[in-house]
Design a protein around this nucleic acid. Structure first.
Ligand SMILES: [Mn+2]
Ligand SMILES: [Mn+2]
Ligand SMILES: [Mn+2]
Ligand SMILES: [Mn+2]
Lengths: 225, 225
DNA sequence: ATTTTATTTTAGGTATGCCTAAATTATATA
DNA sequence: TATATAATTTAGGCATACCTAAAATAAAAT
């Protein structure tokens, strides 16, 4: 069951889309993988016909992962996130640089290397953006965080995660101090401007951020002390 | 001038063979690359036709590198050896494990990653087997070492390099203490048995090794003190 | 100088993973 | 419900990098 680089990338995207929407459609996959829909159809057909099948696929209805496919997807996700953290911790990559490099390395490192990386990192639970790293048995911790934008004024929270899909956003968030483990208090919503004002724990002045940013940052509620 | 993984591997082998024999023949390449001669012919034709050409190739006469090809070869060699040392130093790989992993990673890491690795390793000159690492400008230090088997009884030497092509040999050499920077004195040749007896600096008893091993270990003469 | 043998090349094929253009199917709109 | 639009699939190609079998060439042996 050696999977090609392409198949591995398809699995990762199907995993994410089917978690979010129940299944992954041809055009969604084409978008995320940056290939044409016709290419996706061909690959889905092959992955569904593989032995053992990696996905269930119905014409015009999209794909979901089989148990095998999900296991393979989680293994790549584990490698990807371990690599991101490794690059950040050991090779001084910034959090907006790690994804691109990990995206290539994830298909090429051995199981041994993945284990060694986990060891030198001390069996980490989260990558540099706060995304959870599946444990060695590929179990994913349940997450409780929700978008910063849903905080009500007065609520205190701790940042757990920042969406990693947009390197520009990561640089912006970092410049504001919006990083995992940062504590903050919601100050006010301004619906007309679609902004939210927050007070970071270690910062003098409150800052105001737009809705887009607020929805890319995920927090856990902290009890008001 | 983005080179495929295969082309990169061809360049590395052509580099080595043309250094050793002046040129690389089709069947030598087929052996080292573990593909059929017909496949090599096809690839050599393509690499010679590339713009800019990576090799000069004459039917039935084999290939040599162009300046461009040599530069590309040295870049991959640098990456390979940096990776080997990195795996050894930072991820606890033994010297017989590093090659296989580096062989895949060398085609995939970015120039940035290669630079970062060089930095955390302190701009190293040799890989774990003692092979020289081309400097950032791809210059290779001139080597003075010669096979241990050529030592004359009484001569003192320091091990610089052990051939890395045979993982089994590496484990054997390591078990004997034959590693770069080990000091030793030649004790005796036994031509009938095709062996050489040597005394390692840090070891009580002299050891006797066969000719094959002695020719895989390279040393520099040390002045008798 | 032939002839035999070994090496190398050519010719024709396979698998992957991508593409475009055309055909089909599903969905939305009137 | 018919029709327009959007999504998806099929059909036919291309590039890469392999393969085998047959043909051509070079090298070695007589
Ligand atoms: Mn990522
Ligand atoms: Mn990837
Ligand atoms: Mn090596
Ligand atoms: Mn390689």
């Amino acid at each position: 069951m050696k999977l090609s680089r392409s198949a591995q990338d398809y699995l990762k995207v199907i995993y994410r889309l089917s978690n979010r929407y129940g299944r992954a459609t041809t055009s969604q996959l084409a978008n995320w993988l940056e290939v044409k829909p016709a290419t996706v159809t061909g690959m889905l057909q092959k992955m569904a016909r593989a032995a053992p099948p990696l996905i269930t696929y119905q014409k015009h209805r999209g794909a979901t992962l089989t148990t095998n496919g999900e296991k393979a997807a989680l293994q790549i996700i584990r490698r990807h996130r371990l690599l991101e953290l490794f690059l950040h911790e050991k090779l001084d990559y910034t959090w907006d640089e790690v994804h691109e490099e990990a995206e290539r390395l994830e298909h090429v490192i051995s199981e041994k290397m993945s284990q060694r990386i986990a060891i030198v990192l001390g069996d980490p639970c989260r990558d540099p953006h706060g995304d959870p790293i599946p444990d060695p048995d590929l179990q994913l911790a349940l997450l409780t965080e929700f978008p910063l934008g849903d905080l009500q004024p007065g609520q205190q929270a701790i940042i757990r995660r920042v969406r990693d899909e947009d390197a520009e956003l990561l640089r912006y968030a970092d410049s504001l101090g919006l990083r995992p483990l940062t504590r903050l208090t919601a100050v006010a919503h301004t619906p007309i401007a679609q902004t939210i004002t927050i007070q970071l724990a270690d910062t003098a002045e409150p800052i105001t951020i737009g809705q887009y940013t607020a929805n890319q940052v995920f927090v856990d509620l902290e009890p008001n002390q």
